[in-house]
Every structure is written in C-alpha cells, then in structure tokens.
Nucleic acid binder design. Structure first.
Lengths: 223, 223, 223, 223
DNA sequence: TATGAATGAGGTTTCATTCAT
DNA sequence: TATGAATGAAACCTCATTCAT
C-alpha cells in the first residue's frame, strides 16, 4: 500500500489515485486482454445497474471470464470502478477536440470552444458521472476523484482569467480563483442537471447561455 | 407511494409528496412525542451514517423506542427520510431571515441578500443536502424533491430577471429561464463544493463573488 | 465493546471471556429458549463436523430457526463456540461428583478421587476438548480459554501440594507450582491421548497409574 | 496417499509415509535447489501463518519461483507440509547431542540428559510442533505422524523402565508401558504449554522438575 | 400504543489446482 | 523444467419488515 509517485510526463493532470499497490498488472498479452475486457464489461454493468446494484458476477459474465479471474486483476468492486472512472476522467480532462489557438482566436471564442468541449465530454460520460457523483458522497476516495476534476478545471480557468486580467480584458475587481470556481461550477452543474437529471435544454442553448454569462460576468472586453 | 400534488393553501412551495396516505398522524400527546423523537433521531442517524448505512434499529435506539414503534408512525425508511428532508427543505425555501423590500432596495442589494440567505440555509443543512444528493441519484422520488428545490429557486430567479429586463435594467439578450438555471446552479454548486465537499472559501468570499458575477452576468445597470 | 467485569459470586473460576459486550441477552422467555436451542445445536454440529467445517446454516437448521435468528444472539461462529465451550468448561471445572472430605479421607484417596473426576469429566467432553485444542492453536482467545483450564487445575493442585508439604507429608524439595503444572499436565495429556487421539487404556488403568505416579512423585508419606 | 511402511535400513524411526509414489525427486542440480528452496520457504510460511492460512502462492513467492513449479516437486500443500515436518521430526527423534553411556552414567543422570535433550529439541521446533498439533486434529495422516513421535518416546522409555525394574532399581508395582506413556506425556505437555502456549518456566526449572518427578515416580533407588 | 424476536434471500470473496505456452 | 493466467464452488452475514404478545 505504499504510495509511489508515478510520473506521467508533462501532463498537469494529477492521477486519480495510487493504483500501483493494487493487483500486479498483467505481464502476458492474454492477461492484458482479460483485464481490458473486465474494465469494458464493468463500465457496461455500472452504467446499466448503478454502483450498488452492479454485481461482480454480472461483470465477469459480461467479460466472459470466471469470477476468480476478476480477482487476478482487481481486489474489489471499488477498484474496477476506479479503473473505469480513470478512463472516463481522462476523456473529460483531455477531450480529443483540438483546442483553439489561444493567441489567434478571440477570448470569447476560446471560452465558447472550451465550454462546448466540456459539455460534450460530459454528455459522453454522463451516465458514469452520475454514478461517480453517487459514490463520491459515500466514499472519500471517490470524493477525491471528483474534486480532482473540479479543481483541475477551476485551476485551468483561473489561470486563463488571470491572463485576461493582465491583458486588461477582464474586470480587475474579480478574484480569479473564486470566479473560476463559481463559473466552472455553473457549467458543470448545468451539465449535471441536463445530462444526468433530465432537465431540458439543447446543446446550443447550453453553449450560448454559458458563454454569454461567462463573457458578461467577466466583463470581457470584446472590442 | 406515488407523488400526488396536494394543495397546501397559499404556500408557493409544492409539497414533497402526498403524505396523507401514509401512517395516520399520532392522536395522543405521547404518540406525538414518540413521532417527533423518531424524526429527530432519524436526522441524527442519517447525517452520521448516510442513507444506506442508516439502520432502522439505530434510529429507534437513538429515539429510545422499540423497533416495532417505528412502524406505528412510518411505513419505511424512505418515509422517515422524507419527513426529515421535508423539514430541511422548508428551512431552505423559507429561511427565517426577512427579505429586503424589493421595491426599495437596489437590485444588487436584493441579489446579495438572496444569495446570502441561500448560502446560509445551505450551510445549516449541508449534511442532509449531501445525503439527499446521494439518494436523489438512486430514487426518483427524491430526485423530484431535489429538483423541486432547484426549480423553485430557478423559477423565482427567472421571474426576478424578467422583471428587471422589463424595467430595462438587465441585458435583454439574455434568456431569463436559462440564465436563472445557470446562475442558480452556480450558487448551489458552489455551496455544495464548499459546505459538502470541503472546498475552502469564506462566507464573505462566497457572497461577494456570487453577487458580483450575477450583477456582471446580467449586465445589471447600477447607475 | 467495553469490558465490564462481571461478578460471579464466590466462585474461584475466572470467566472465559467478557461476554457482556456481545449480543444482548434475550429478555423474553421465547428468546431464552431460542438461544438455548442454538447453543445445544451448535454443540451437536461442532462435535460432528469440527470447528472449521461447521456451517452456521447447519446450526440453525439443527436448532430449527432462521439464519437471522442466529445473529440475534451471536455475532459470529466464534461466539457460539465460546458459549458452547463455556458450558463444557463449567462441567470440567465443577464436576457434579461430591469431593471427598479432605480432612477425613487419606491424601492418596483424595488424589485418586480428584484424578478420577477429572478423567471422567474429560471423557464426557472429549470431542469438544479436541475441537478446542484445535481452535486454541489458531485463535488467541481460545488459547486463553484453554490455558484458563490448565492453570485453574494447576493452581488448585499447587495449593493442595503446598498444604501437604506443610503437614510434612510430601517431599519438601519439590516446587509445588512446577510439580502441579507437570503432574496436572501428565493427567490431561494422558486424557487427551486416550479420549481424543485413540490411545488404548482403560479408565481403571488411567486412574491407577496416575494416582500411583502422583503418590510416588510427591513421595507422599502413606504411613 | 495411504501410508505404507517402507524400510529405511537400520533406522528405528518409522518413516512418516511412503514418499516413493509422490513426485519424482529432482534429477538436475537446479531442480534440487528449487525443491530445497520450496521446503525452506514452506517452513517459513507455515510457521508464520499456520497450516490453513498458508497459501501456496506465498510459499512460491518466498521461494522465488512460479506457482506452477511447485507442482513439479509436490502434489499438494499436504505433501510439502509432510516434507517440512519430516525434517523436524528427524531432529526431534535424533537430536545431535550425544547420549550418555547408559552403562556408566547413573540412571538419574540418563533421565536428566534424556529430558533435557527432548525439551531442547522441542524448543527448537516449537512453532512447527504447534502447527502439527493443529493439523493432527483434522488430518489422520498427520495424527499418525504425531502419535509416531509420542509412541517412539513412550516405547523407548518403557524399555528403559522395564530394564531398571529388572535391575531392581524401580518400583516393581509399576506398569512400564502406562508409566512411560504418562511420564513422557508429562514432559511433552509441559514443553507444549511452555514453548507453544507461553506458560512461564525456565529450562532449568523444566529439567529439574521433570527429572525429580520421574525419579520419585519410579521410586528409583539412587543408593 | 409498545415491544422485540423472527425471518431469509443472495452477493462477495478465496485459493488449491490445472494447463497452455 | 518454468511460467502465470484461469477456474469455480461454497458459505457468511445483513437488515428491513412482520407479527404475536
């Protein structure tokens, strides 16, 4: 259970948790295949049944392997869930869509692109995010996973706001960290309400509204 | 167990659920005391252990009565939880603090007072809100309770924004409903992050930031 | 889990363990009946199948009650076993047979009566003693139970030897405690070998041999 | 797996079991090394975890070889344990210490030397003896191993007592076999209590007490 | 109105052993 | 001779709810 820090290259994204002390990773190709099948199967089952109602035997059945094999790679339901969430989290934090060149595009366009990317990634992973929200309430480990996402976005946005303030484009009376926390939260809560809880709004409405409110809230000078 | 709306006089707050079909309310004074003790005990146990880990026997033990007595007043765990949440929800929607007179105070002052009242009510009920968030994910009935709160606030705010637009004080390009949803969500998500998940921010920071962002976002004319 | 000392009146026998913190004892007659049935059933199953192979469901089936009822009275297999062993231990330490009056009977007769009583009690409880021996190796709690028995006998015998030394009837060069430990061990090991492991010897041989060896070993003056 | 006796030359020690039908002994030097590493590792793991809790994977990990390799040399957990116990049993029955010359030394000195040798060998192998005691209760094959040790000592002692009776040095009223069984048991039970269960006594106390009690019990004429 | 004993379904987890490479 | 992934049966325990007293 010792905590070895695992370098992840230049990525600014902190790892979800120390997974190095868990089950040993597979050394053969067959092992890797089985493990991957289990993670994929787990995602299916978790999204279908929720965390609590997901039964390990359903996961192994879906992965077409025996119960025992599950424990070759994971030591508990919690641990597969972490593996599944880690994949999704990666997609959330690094959506494939190419970022706009911040030097060329207008700040408003950058904000719009960023909000759209976030909302679309959220939509792709909505079911899992719902489950994560539920588990995070109960399990501190997953609470941390969830907060890692929030804080990563908030920090990213705080830096962007500060930069715009330096350029004289944004209301200098604003605290970049608090504003970033509030505005990021606004977007994610909206995403949660719409994609997870079923509030009604189109993607266009979401992108337009969030972008306009960001721009207004920051008093972004669009001249 | 289905949720029929039942008028409750002039209150604008929709009831959480139809409680008329549940257990008959206590008729004797002793019965009323026992029931009250159970609700209080349930709040303690739910806040301490969470919904799923709360055991009925712990609640009855805390209330110093027998297991059987529980079923004299409630027909299930769900039902006591509803009773507990109903109390808290009432406090959230009708915080004791006197509202400013909207006709005399400036719009910004009204927004600030409103945000402060919300944040303080959230803080008082944070533990329970956390549990409710968890249960809402799983149980549609409580999802409804949660959304009732969101929509009550959003609707209230949407009306206020529309009124300010009519008075020419707010950016007419804004969709009052979407903006209200987004801005209310911003406040509640902030409250959730800080009071439930432990993010760090002072009450002053929260009130100042949310107020400024609301004012900016709406392009509220403060002249 | 707090450890309340429970007085047991004038008995010199220490309790096996603190059972007061376990499940609450039954308060109704029906409860007492069920609990007693479970203990009796447990003894049957443990003696038949051994500790490890004893399944809780076999015990409840034998006691004609549901699995759940088991957990009303005991929190684990370990705990019923303790209850069963406690009964047997009581029989071992207080065999019903009336002790000889030590003032009137000759010391050798007292020794013989004592050895016979021990051997007969051991024979009655042999199956359970075997199981206890097995469990004691693994579980410190039961190791303590087992040592309690050894030490109770050794202490009792040490006092008797010391008294005889004071009366000038026994070799003064003997250390009463070590001798008692050794001679008590001799009898119990013999009992174990014969009644548990199947070595062959008649009760008469056992009583005669142990008595003679005790008398000789202590150089008991029989004049 | 049945236990056929197979002569092993002049040794008076009966073999524990027929090992000829087990896995073929290693033919290469590497194989011999692996097998030896497994036996050594098994002793470590058995002493540390007990028989039941010892996992084959722990043994192979300790021996730094793969799971599969285990089955190249042993066909089951039982079989390694037998190999481990056989080594220890050999040490118990043939302690390296040179026996006194029975023709020259006094009988009491022979008894003392014999008891000391036994107690010291027991001390060396105490942990394993504890495990064996546990397994013997459950598995007839190991019960036999254990009884082999008891009976070997008892028989050896019975012959010695009979010889001393023939020489007129010992109480003729004693049954040599029963006395040997009882007195050997006394020593081994003492060793078990002190070295396995943690009763307190020094080696000197043990040797002095057992020797004196033997001498007294046999009414050994030391003139 | 109060009591507390009884119910019972069903998922998680373990690890000796096999066998394809 | 060495490797390590795959197998799968089997049993403990929980706790919301009922109901006889």
């Amino acid at each position: 259970m010792s905590s070895k820090s695992s370098a992840r290259g230049e990525s600014a994204v902190p790892p979800l948790a120390d997974t190095s002390a868990f089950r040993a990773p597979p050394v053969t190709a067959r092992g890797a295949r089985t493990r991957a099948a289990l993670v994929a199967a787990a995602r299916v089952v978790f999204e279908r049944d929720g965390y609590l109602d997901a039964r390990l035997t359903d996961i192994t059945a879906e992965a077409k392997c025996s119960t025992g094999s599950f424990y070759t790679y994971f030591s508990s339901k919690e641990e597969v869930f972490l593996a599944v969430v880690e994949e999704a989290q990666h997609d959330m934090l690094h959506p494939g869509a190419p970022h706009l060149d911040e030097d060329e595009a207008s700040p408003a366009a950058v904000i719009e692109a960023s909000n759209r990317a976030y909302l679309e990634a959220y939509k792709r992973n909505a079911k899992l995010m719902l489950i994560l929200e539920q588990v995070a309430v109960v399990d501190p480990k997953f609470r941390e996973v969830r907060r890692t996402r929030s804080r990563t976005f908030a920090a990213r946005n705080a830096r962007a706001i500060a930069r715009l303030q330096e350029q004289g484009l944004v209301d200098p009376g604003i605290d970049p960290k608090m504003a970033a926390m509030a505005l990021s939260g606004m977007v994610s809560r909206l995403a949660y309400n719409v994609f997870c809880l079923g509030d009604k709004a189109s993607m266009k409405q979401l992108v337009d509204t969030t972008t306009r409110l960001w721009v207004n809230a920051l008093k972004l000078d669009e001249s």
